[in-house]
Design a binder for these strands. Structure first.
Lengths: 142, 142
DNA sequence: AAGTTTTATGTTATATTGTTGCATTAAATG
DNA sequence: CATTTAATGCAACAATATAACATAAAACTT
């Protein structure tokens, strides 16, 4: 979503060391306009580097834990990852095509949730609200 | 959610044969007041029957396919299953506690989504909208 | 700068969840 | 009752993620 990010700065901001692998993972996620799975990311990186699959998982976990990326669940079995919302990346829902497995970002306007009541009445700690639309994307429609 | 269901009638209504295993799976899901994973369901059934793990998965798939139950994704790795919405079971969001892994149904009022725009502008086929709140439930709060 | 500690990465093994293929049992149909 | 079809069980497999331990790289200490 956010093509011009300074990924070094992002890492620095949360006190993480800057390594090649971390930058590459962030870059792949950042320049993609929809969320990717760990396998997607690993495949993209394998083209020009030799990063290990497990390292990808570890970096993803680290970045999620530090709030730089977010982990989305899908109608399928894998998690997908996208850059965390920021000033030029507002909260939005996602569409998951159960045929091709691709995630798509929906515009913030197309689907909005009113969470104002929830915060008042729910007794636990709320960390995030995930809205996902499942179906068949236009490319996979018969 | 819906304790007094006639599960035989539900199966009949969608032209599925009535078997003991199917009834038991439906009963477990139906009498539970929050969605359960396949493993949860299997464990509950193993107490007084000997149903196979794979059979549980197959029945769940069948029931989802026929619209009797719905499959929810969580912040974790397993799918959870609950009875499909009906007249006394309105559409609602779910809360997932990432500590104990339990799902909770939220009241329909506490969180509502406006999907009116989406249907108009989205070019693919929309099958469902899933809203999940992740966090820590009150029992797991420190 | 050399040695020590800490952190990041790689490698292999394992866990979890779900699915497939095939044999067997049970039910429905003729 | 014989034949076909459907349901279940069992064993193997597949996909995704994590854990345990070894090694490499970086940071820190003297």
């Amino acid at each position: 979503m956010n093509h011009q990010c300074d990924y070094e700065a992002l890492l620095k901001a949360v006190n993480l060391r800057i390594t090649d692998n971390r930058l590459q993972v962030l870059q792949v996620i950042g320049k993609n306009h929809y969320p990717l799975s760990a396998t997607d990311i690993h495949h993209k990186l394998e083209c020009d580097s030799t990063i290990n699959r497990v390292t990808v998982y570890r970096i993803l976990e680290l970045l999620v834990g530090n709030g730089l990326i977010e982990r989305l669940s899908t109608g399928g079995r894998a998690f997908y990852y996208g850059l965390t919302l920021n000033h030029n990346h507002r909260s939005h829902a996602h569409f998951y095509c159960k045929k091709c497995g691709q995630m798509e970002c929906l515009t913030p306007e197309s689907l909005t949730a009113d969470t104002s009541q929830l915060g008042k009445i729910f007794p636990g700690r709320i960390e995030k609200v995930e809205i996902r639309v499942d179906g068949i994307c236009k490319n996979c429609l018969p």
